[in-house]
């Protein structure tokens, strides 16, 4: 293969990987949001993404409710915000003050419930979300970029910056960080810990929906795409749980490594690659790339 064509191919892989990575990053953002606010880990994040995508599909597709895409997506986001908020209010709040792994097991189980709900309503065969920009491609000097990929990248960047600003500058965001560091102390100084937790769950539901819709614009969805959450989890850990830019970076790394490994290594190795990367990061830097763990000084 000539050098130039080879370079083009790699570039093409990189762009596809980047768009994929953005979606991993967005799901990872959802993890990180909840982790940042309550230091709980929501293993159902991938399934929330799946549910969000299906709700958008149910509202927007021709055969279903048939709303316009631009109306269906915000509606789905709002609905998922409500679902996330409700889940916190009804279920997760009961675990307040329990050991962390109780939440892990609970959310794993919740993921199965979500999958069952989606499967019973929309079935288990792959469905395609109808979008106004399906199949539109841009050509940039020999590299073909689909509009869906471009939108995924842009939306992710904007969302990450917005969320980062929310945690760094707004009063609510700071309160959320405080409550994750020490619930009792922040309760004493007047942070409404419970309300903040519910809000972050809602927010992470909304982010998951955005990820789900972006995922659906790039391919068919079925109730098992929630398993992507595991990969997104690896992304969050690589970046360092609790760091928003870290989550995005982790997602991008995984997104890029996967197609490259798939191109140059056997298929099984490509599937393993995100997890190997994660283990390497965990062993060398246990807190992730943007470590949030500090040794306590006595």
């Amino acid at each position: 293969m000539p050098m130039a064509a080879h370079l083009m191919e790699v570039l093409q892989l990189l762009i596809g990987g980047l768009a994929n990575g953005c979606i991993y990053g967005l799901v990872a953002l959802g993890f990180v949001l909840i982790y940042k606010a309550s230091e709980g880990v929501n293993f159902a994040q991938g399934d929330m993404m799946m549910l969000g995508a299906f709700i958008a599909l149910g509202l927007g597709n021709e055969g279903q409710l048939g709303l316009s895409f631009w109306l269906a997506v915000p509606l789905a986001i709002a609905l998922m915000f409500g679902i996330g908020w409700t889940v916190e209010r009804v279920v997760v709040r009961q675990l307040f003050g329990q050991p962390q792994f109780a939440l892990v097991i609970l959310t794993i189980a919740m993921g199965f419930v979500f999958r069952f709900i989606a499967g019973s309503i929309w079935g288990y065969s792959p469905l395609v979300l109808e979008t106004p920009f399906a199949g539109v491609n841009l050509s940039l000097g020999g590299v073909v970029i689909s509009l869906a990929d471009l939108i995924a990248i842009v939306v992710t960047l904007v969302l990450t910056v917005a969320l980062w600003a929310f945690f760094a500058f707004t009063k609510v965001g700071l309160a959320a960080q405080a409550s994750s560091q020490n619930q009792m102390a922040s309760y004493i100084v007047g942070v409404p810990v419970m309300k903040i937790n519910a809000l972050t769950w809602g927010l992470s539901g909304a982010v998951a929906t955005v990820a789900g819709v972006l995922y659906a614009t790039r391919g068919a969805i079925d109730p098992n795409i929630g398993l992507l959450g595991i990969k997104a989890f690896a992304a969050a850990v690589i970046g360092g749980l609790g760091s928003l830019p870290g989550a995005l970076l982790g997602g991008l790394l995984i997104g890029i490594i996967e197609p490259i490994a798939g191109r140059y290594a056997p298929g099984e190795l490509a599937i393993m690659s995100p997890y190997i990367l994660m283990l390497v990061v965990l062993v060398t830097r246990p807190g992730g790339l943007f470590a949030q763990i500090h040794m306590k000084k006595v």
Binding site: F101, L241, Y275
Partner: peptide
């Protein structure tokens, strides 16, 4: 290496090990 990780990190690391073993 994994026991250096606590709680949630260990759970995730074991999950990763599982996927690797499966492949």
């Amino acid at each position: 290496p994994a026991v250096r990780l606590s709680g949630i990190y260990l759970a995730i690391a074991t999950l990763a090990v599982f996927v690797i073993v499966e492949e």
